[in-house]
Amino acid sequence: MHGSELPEGVRRFIAEHIESVEQLEILLLLFRHPERTWSADEASRELRISELSAGERLVDLARDTHVVRAENGGRDYRYAPEDAERDEAVRGLVSAYAERRVTVINLIFSKPTDKISTFANAFRFWKGGERD
């Protein structure tokens, strides 16, 4: 299956907001439990990922206005998209992931990433203060 089999809104949402399957899984976890807050530790235990990574993904999702920090100012987050449009996009993603999990994962992995370029650039040789 190809990413083109997904609705345009889902493809666009993934392209603009989802950087990893891990981030997607955290978003879906919070989406499934909108009444509760999650710390990085709780999310990491639930999804069996590192706490550091879970914390970074929660911060990313908050920056993208899909989740918010708990009102107590702590390190807990809950699902609370900025507006109905974002909520609808997440709902579309939830549906697509349930029906076409592999297609969604393939689309996430097929995205170009700046991290690869950064890694590759680390191995370039420098000569006389300029890049070759």
Rank of each mutant, 00 (worst) to 15 (best):
H2D: 06
E5P: 05
L6S: 03
L6H: 07
P7A: 12
G9E: 10
F13W: 12
I14Q: 00
I14S: 00
A15T: 13
H17P: 03
V21L: 08
Q23C: 04
Q23H: 11
L24G: 02
E25C: 15
E25M: 15
I26M: 09
I26Y: 04
I26T: 11
L28Y: 01
L28S: 08
L29S: 09
L29P: 03
L30P: 01
L30F: 04
F31W: 14
R32F: 02
H33P: 00
P34A: 06
P34N: 04
E35K: 12
T37R: 04
W38G: 06
W38V: 06
D41K: 13
A43Q: 09
S44D: 07
R45T: 13
R45V: 14
E46D: 07
E46F: 05
L47Y: 09
R48S: 14
I49C: 14
I49E: 01
S50P: 00
S50R: 08
S50H: 12
S50V: 05
E51L: 04
S53Y: 15
S53L: 11
A54P: 07
G55I: 02
G55H: 04
G55A: 02
E56N: 06
E56K: 11
E56V: 10
L58G: 02
V59F: 01
D60V: 07
D60I: 05
L61C: 09
L61I: 10
A62S: 08
D64E: 14
D64N: 12
T65L: 14
T65I: 03
H66R: 07
V67P: 01
V67A: 08
V68Q: 11
R69P: 00
E71C: 01
G73E: 10
G73L: 15
G74A: 10
R75I: 05
R75E: 07
D76G: 10
D76M: 10
Y77L: 01
Y77I: 00
Y77C: 00
Y77W: 07
R78W: 11
R78S: 11
Y79V: 07
Y79Q: 02
A80G: 04
P81T: 07
P81C: 13
E82L: 14
E82S: 11
D83N: 13
D83C: 10
A84E: 14
A84Y: 10
E85T: 06
E85P: 01
E85C: 02
R86C: 11
R86Q: 12
R86A: 14
D87C: 14
E88G: 12
A89M: 13
R91I: 02
L93Y: 04
L93A: 02
V94H: 03
A96M: 12
Y97H: 15
A98R: 15
A98H: 06
R101W: 07
V102G: 12
V102L: 15
T103Y: 07
V104A: 00
I105G: 06
N106Y: 06
N106I: 01
L107F: 04
S110H: 08
S110C: 03
K111Q: 15
K111E: 10
T113G: 08
D114W: 07
S117A: 09
T118P: 02
T118G: 10
T118M: 12
N121D: 04
N121M: 13
A122W: 08
F123P: 05
F123D: 08
F123H: 15
R124P: 01
W126P: 03
W126H: 13
K127F: 11
G128V: 09
G128E: 15
R131H: 09
D132N: 07
D132G: 06
